[in-house]
Design a protein around this nucleic acid. Structure first.
Lengths: 190, 190
DNA sequence: ATATTTTTTGAGTGATCATTCAAGGTAATG
DNA sequence: CATTACCTTGAATGATCACTCAAAAAATAT
């Protein structure tokens, strides 16, 4: 039995880069071949088809994202400060050269029409993020407030992810976040 | 001189439907041919290429959207109530069967990578919406507050547009909007 | 009517799409 | 070493892509 000669994680990471930037439709398998260095046959044996590879890439991205949220919230001195740090990281990310918003959000929007598995998967993962945030909020607030604020947090995540394409908008976004999330300890976070 | 035999507005409207739902890359010119009933030659004579048609469709969508915002805000009994009505309309829209988010937002996300004219155009129009909202806010609030709240309104618009794909979430979204936009007169709007 | 100008038609272009597969290579097993 | 089992290779497939163009039709101008 010959084992796969390529590093699967590496291939997935490169695929995340490609699909995240260009989306599903605008990424061709020939680009995947160029990006990963694999030949078509190897890709199809390992991942089935374009959707299979995209799915694994999206899955890996989602897992990393959710882990990062958990990690930041678990290590911060308080929930509020953790949330502020998460938002600051998203704002920071939007200032980079090749800003790409969020892979999950882009997939949710791009692939909603065909109602396919990828759209469902992206939606499920975004819901998972909301549930996670709510579970953290429920440590400090009652259920009703927690649910409301979880939705509000998602609005602001989506908001920053879309707004972030505007150049030099980081400071405006920080102001907007303070306006909509006044219950977070923005000033402690210096 | 023969005049065009098709109704340009009608063709644009049908193209809006197609491109809004599927995006640029996932909409083929053959679908455009089927949707509009025009033959390829006529389309290319009238609009140049796929990007030209997409651009006109996006332009028409943006104009309609901005006009609608103006209209609602001008006819409402107060600015706050007008804004509430706008949000309620967006929430309502998300409950429909073939919900498609917002054509401008989808374009901004889909076509950011190539940095092309269409991404720039969508971004410019979204900025125009923000400027419009700010100009209305400045009638009631000072410049600083108006700018902050305009950003906050955009966050919530983007938020609802992305969140809206979740089924049966209208009531949750309304709660989330109250949470993040407490300065709006939600209860007067019954 | 006739001439002129513009539009419509729809088959056809070469390029690129996702995907396949037979042949050759490589590693573990007996 | 031989066999087995899996992997890689890369040219080839048919479909579909955006787009073109010469000829027919249609509408105005004279």
């Amino acid at each position: 039995m010959a084992k796969a000669q390529f590093d699967r994680k590496e291939v997935i990471d490169k695929s995340i880069g490609l699909f995240w930037q260009n989306g599903f439709s605008a990424s061709s398998m020939q680009q995947v071949v160029r990006t990963t260095g694999l030949k078509p046959g190897s890709i199809y044996l390992a991942f089935g088809n374009k959707e299979g590879l995209f799915r694994e890439a999206l899955e890996a991205y989602a897992q990393k994202s959710i882990e990062r949220i958990r990690n930041v919230l678990d290590t911060a001195p308080s929930l509020g400060e953790g949330l502020c740090r998460l938002f600051e990281a998203v704002v920071q990310e939007s200032t980079k050269e090749n800003y790409c918003s969020c892979f999950l959000i882009k997939t949710r929007l791009e692939l909603a029409a065909e109602g396919g598995a990828l759209h469902e998967f992206a939606s499920a993962k975004l819901n998972e993020v909301e549930d996670l945030l709510r579970s953290y909020l429920e440590k400090k607030f009652d259920k009703t407030v927690s649910r409301q604020r979880a939705v509000s947090l998602m609005f602001h995540i989506f908001g920053v992810r879309v707004y972030g394409y505007q150049k030099d908008s980081a400071e405006h976004m920080r102001q907007g976040l303070r306006e909509g999330l006044p219950w977070l300890p923005w000033d402690l976070d210096a």
